[in-house]
Design a protein around this nucleic acid. Structure first.
Lengths: 214, 214
DNA sequence: ATTTTTATAGGGGTTACCCCCTATATTTAA
DNA sequence: TTAAATATAGGGGGTAACCCCTATAAAAAT
C-alpha cells in the first residue's frame, strides 16, 4: 500500500471543519494530521507536521487564507494548497491563483469535490470547482448574440477589412492586398467606425485588436 | 417526472460512440436521440431533432467539431454544446470557448464527467474537465521572470507611462495626468519604443494593448 | 421601377504617433 | 569625480488614421 496523503486543515467554523475531517479520514489513503482555526495557527501546524497538502478557508479571522498561503509558500514551495471559499469572488480567485494555490473549491460544492481536488492536486494537476471554471470562461465567452449584434451590421467587405485591421495592417497594406485604392479602404474604415460607433484616433485599431478572432 | 434531457452525439469512432450512448441512456433523465460520425451529419440531425444538447468530438473527418459548433450556434443559439477532445490543446480550447461552447471535457476523463458535464450545462453552468482548468490557470500565471524580462529595462516612469498607454490614453491625456509636457511623454514613448525594439506607427499602442495587465 | 445600400475613388483638413535632433538639471554608476 | 542614465522640454518633419465632404456604377431591397 502506498503512503497516506498527509493533510492539515484550516477553517474557523468548527462544525464545517468537523465535517471535513470526517470526509477525509473516511477516505482510504488520506489522513488529517492537524487542524487550525485561523491563519497563524495553520502556519504553525504546517511547520510542525510538514504535510503534503493544506486545505484552507479564504475567510478566517486575523491572518486570512490568502496571507497564510503566501507565507506558507514562501517557507516551503513544495507544499500543496487547496483553497476553500464561501462566495464566488473573481478578484479573490485571481489573487489566489497568482499566489500559487493549486486548487480552489466552493464550500457549497459536493464533498466529493474536496476528495477529487486533493487527488488531482497530489497528481500534479490544478483543480477548480466547475462553478469556478464558469467564472474564468465568461471572460472569453462573449455570447453569440453580442458578436452578431455588431458584426451583423458590417458587410462582407467591411468584415474582411475589419479582420485585416485586426492583424495590424495599415490601409495602404490592405489596399494592396485587395487591389483597390487606399482611399477606398479609408472610406470603409470610416463606415466601419460609424457602424461600430467608434470615435477618436486609433479607436478602430484598438477595437479590432481587442476583438481579434471574432 | 421531469422531461428527459434530449441529447445528440457526434464522434467518428463507433466504439467510443457506442460507449457514450450506453452511458447516457442508462442515466435516468437522459436520452440519446441520434448519432453522427462527422460534423455535417451532426448539423443535419440537430436540425431534425432539435435536441437540448449536442455532445461532439473536436476531431472528426470533414467538418470538424469547431466548424460544426460554429454553424450550429449560428442557426440556433439556444442549443447547448459539450465538446470532447483527445488532447489538451490550448489553442483549440480557446477557440472552442470563443465560439461559445458550454463545456469541454477530455475523452480520457471518467464517464461520470460526461454526465456531470451535461447536468451542469443544462443547469446553465459552464463545465470544464479539471485537467482543462489547469491550462487556464497557467495563462494568468505568467512567471515573474518573463514579466521582468522586458519590463526590467523600463524605468519606473516609463513603466507608469507604458501602463497608461495600455489603457488607450493619448500622450496629451497622459501629460495632463502626470503634470508634465506632452513633449516629455512623447520622448518617453520614443525611449520605450527603443527599449522594446518597436518600430512603425502605433506599434507601441499595439504592444501595450497586447500586454495589458503586465 | 424606384430607392437604398454597397463598393469604388477622390479632395481637403486635423491630429496623434513616430522619428530625427538639441538642451538642461538631477540622479546614479563607474 | 567623471561619465552615464534619467526626466524634463522643445524644434521640426513625416505619415497614418480619422473626419468632413462629393461622386459614380452596380447590386439589393422596396
Amino acid at each position: 500500500m502506498t503512503k497516506n496523503i498527509r493533510i492539515v486543515l484550516a477553517d474557523d467554523h468548527p462544525i464545517f471543519r468537523k465535517g471535513l475531517v470526517e470526509v477525509i479520514n473516511t477516505t482510504p489513503g488520506m489522513e488529517v494530521l492537524a487542524e487550525a482555526s485561523n491563519g497563524e495557527e495553520l502556519i504553525r501546524i504546517v511547520d510542525e507536521t510538514q504535510p503534503d497538502i493544506a486545505v484552507l478557508d479564504v475567510n478566517m479571522p486575523g491572518t486570512d487564507g490568502l496571507q497564510a498561503a503566501t507565507r506558507i509558500l514562501a517557507r516551503n514551495g513544495t507544499i500543496k494548497l487547496l483553497m476553500l471559499t464561501m462566495r464566488t469572488d473573481e478578484d479573490v480567485f485571481m489573487e489566489a491563483m497568482d499566489i500559487g494555490v493549486n486548487g480552489y473549491i466552493l464550500k457549497e460544492n459536493a464533498v466529493s469535490d474536496v476528495i477529487n481536488g486533493i487527488n488531482a492536486i497530489m497528481n500534479g494537476q490544478t483543480y477548480l470547482s466547475p462553478s469556478i471554471s464558469g467564472l474564468l470562461v465568461k471572460k472569453n465567452h462573449k455570447p453569440l448574440e453580442k458578436k452578431n449584434d455588431f458584426l451583423q451590421h458590417l458587410t462582407s467587405t467591411e468584415l474582411r477589412i475589419f479582420k485585416l485591421i485586426a492583424e495590424s495592417k495599415t490601409s495602404k497594406e490592405i489596399s494592396k492586398e485587395l487591389f483597390v485604392s487606399e482611399k477606398t479602404i479609408e472610406n470603409h474604415r470610416t463606415n466601419i467606425c460609424k457602424k461600430l460607433k467608434l470615435k477618436g484616433k486609433n479607436s478602430l485599431l484598438k477595437f479590432a485588436l481587442e476583438h481579434r478572432g471574432w
